[in-house]
């Protein structure tokens, strides 16, 4: 049997959440190193569109289980199906997007298969021995751990959206589609969806912004933090924040930048009073140019900035506002 790397197809918010496509891209890189094929696993009903999309984004094979009873995501059915498929096909690796659903599905599948699982990886590589090196934040974000699953198979990891880059849509790519009938003996659902409602889409502004002004605990207070909005407006940008700021209620949870929030890739990132914990920085590494302001020249955020300004964040923010008002041609 061919060695394979599987990506669980999480298509429920296909247009907003590209994590499955990003994982397909990463799986292609990893597969090249161990001579494996990349396979997407799609469970659902009326899903041909997605099957085609996944092939166009790098799936060499798509395993499909299609049935009316899979019309809605079902944790129990999906966990059993993933387990059975994995037992039949024995993939080397299973990658799952860290959506809320994926973060619940992955541990269940791992437990059923008696294998390991690393949550929220920020990097995936193959070792010389052909093992999956799973790189994940640990100990509250100060440290990074490299984790292996040496003996158990498959090796499993979840990854948040935005860590890897998708391969652009390519219609000339080909993939084999393997259709598997729904097993007759699936257990009865003990958890049933009674009602659901799609929530209004989250704004994507932060992800798309060309300038992001990010503030951390070092801004000092809610009142002082407000200045960042004025600065962002002058820069035609958006305001982001770290977790302590969100917890303190200085800004809405939607503005959280980091592993638990959004990934950003602005042309310029202004970072005010942010220490640079990995959960935050992992989501800003794609910023083209970073200007960081911190009283502490040794803060991690300062080390990864293009311009590291050792100063009081509030004073610098005010000075920038004044200067921009002066300079912007109206």
């Amino acid at each position: 049997m061919n060695r394979s790397i599987w990506v669980f197809a999480d298509y429920r918010n296909y247009f907003q959440n590209r994590v499955t496509l990003q994982l397909l891209a990463k799986a292609n890189q990893l597969a090249a190193q161990i001579g494996a094929e990349v396979c997407a696993v799609v469970l659902g009903y009326k899903i041909d569109e997605y099957v085609a999309e996944y092939i166009a984004h790098g799936a060499q094979k798509v395993v499909v289980v299609e049935h009316r009873s899979l019309q809605k995501y079902s944790m129990e059915k999906y966990a059993v199906l993933m387990e059975r498929l994995a037992r039949d096909y024995q993939p080397e690796i299973i990658l799952i997007g860290a959506t809320a659903f994926g973060r619940e599905l992955a541990p269940r599948v791992a437990k059923r298969l008696g294998t390991g699982l690393t949550a929220d990886c920020i990097g995936l590589e193959m070792t010389e021995d052909g093992l999956l090196r799973q790189i994940a934040p640990s100990f509250g974000g100060n440290l990074v751990a490299e984790i292996l699953t040496p003996e158990h198979r498959p090796q499993m990891a979840t990854v948040r959206a935005g860590i890897f880059q998708e391969i652009p849509h390519n219609n000339s790519l080909h993939g084999e589609v393997v259709r598997i009938p729904l097993p007759k003996d699936l257990p009865k659902d003990r958890l049933r969806l009674i009602a659901y409602q799609r929530q209004p889409q989250r704004d994507q502004r932060l992800e798309d912004a060309r300038v992001v002004v990010c503030g951390g605990r070092g801004m000092g207070s809610k009142k002082k933090f407000k200045k960042l909005f004025e600065l962002a407006q002058l820069l035609a940008g958006e305001v982001g924040a770290t977790r302590p700021v969100v917890y303190a209620g200085w800004i809405d949870n939607d503005a959280l930048v980091g592993q638990a929030g959004r990934n950003i890739r602005p042309q310029i990132l202004f970072s005010f009073g942010i220490s640079g914990a990995i959960q935050h920085t992992a989501a800003v590494t794609d910023a083209e140019f970073i200007i960081a302001v911190n009283k502490n020249p040794n803060a991690t955020m300062m080390k990864m900035a293009d311009v590291a300004v050792v100063a009081d964040a509030n004073q610098l923010c005010s000075a920038l506002i004044k200067e921009l008002k002066d300079r912007i041609q109206t």
Binding site: V144, E146, I147, K303, A305, V310
Partner: peptide, 26 residues
């Protein structure tokens, strides 16, 4: 099943420009 093989502090130091002084000057 999972083994931690290495733990480190991720300071990906960039060669950056450091600026200091009054806010106005910076």
């Amino acid at each position: 099943p999972t083994k931690i093989i290495n733990v480190y502090s991720p300071t990906a130091a960039k060669k950056n420009i450091v600026m200091q002084g009054t806010a106005k000057k910076v």
